[in-house]
Amino acid sequence: MRSCCSSTKFLWNLWLGVALLLCAASVQAAGTPIPHGTLELIAENQSIAAGHELYLGLHFQLEKGWHIYWVNPGDSGEPPRIKWQLPPAITVGEIEWPTPRRLGTPSIVDFGYEDEVTLIVPIHAQASLASQQSAQIGAEVKVLVCREICIPGKAQLSLTLPVESRMAAPDARNSSLFAAARKSLPRPAPRSWKLSVADAGNSLVLTANLGHQVSQAVFFPLAESQIDNAAPQKLLPASAGFRLALRKSDQLRKPIARLKGVLVLSAAQAYIIDVPLGSPGATENTGAEIYAAQFLDEVPLR
């Protein structure tokens, strides 16, 4: 009698425990609340192995109309900031930022992400991790979420990864998020491209020889205060590329050495460019100046 009841009770407790675990798992999957959205820390693989690299992801899901910021936020706002809490045997790399979008108004332009975005970041496990059974990874994330108004949020996220002798296969639950994140990363510019940047007084002119025509090009500057974010970027298509005039920022007081950023030619074509400021021949320079003046100030030249 007693044994019967206690075993029923045991089973009942077991089921309760399972139910609670499932419940916790579903909450985990939904992510930690942030203002007008949720944030979840995910790993590309189910476990980690000493001597290997693994990608983590911060998956932001935002309510319609709300956004967070790129590494260069543009005219207002700030990018998410992460304070990692890692075991000594794990080191973390840099966030790989997906191509941003232009957000804001005609006079104030920001760079960021709406709806959903995953920021991926590599971590590396040193050999000494092998002595551990699991690795506890924590991240304190400070994030500014904006629509017309901005609300600062903070989330404490954590993830426990078992330590195994070999890298586990990718975690199927997260593979689509990591695939989407990688697809949204800007790629290195093709080696065949010929890019140059000329200082044309009030603007910087990016001249690109890509070997083919383009109908649109938008530049996102990696550094703050180089170009005027809100100024229209004027594109002059050429037979094998284009010229793009970028008005200088009012905060730019010294000549720049390089123009770094992301060049977007279409939704599926975004490239990282890093172009030293050239000293092109006199003819080309004059061309750039006339071009810049003509296009930036809407003054017809002919």
Partner: peptide, 18 residues
């Protein structure tokens, strides 16, 4: 330092997006 990037919230002009 006569100029820096002015951080903060965007100024809520009449042309603010909704």
């Amino acid at each position: 330092t006569p100029t820096t990037r002015p951080y903060g919230c965007s100024v809520k002009y009449a042309d603010s997006a909704h």
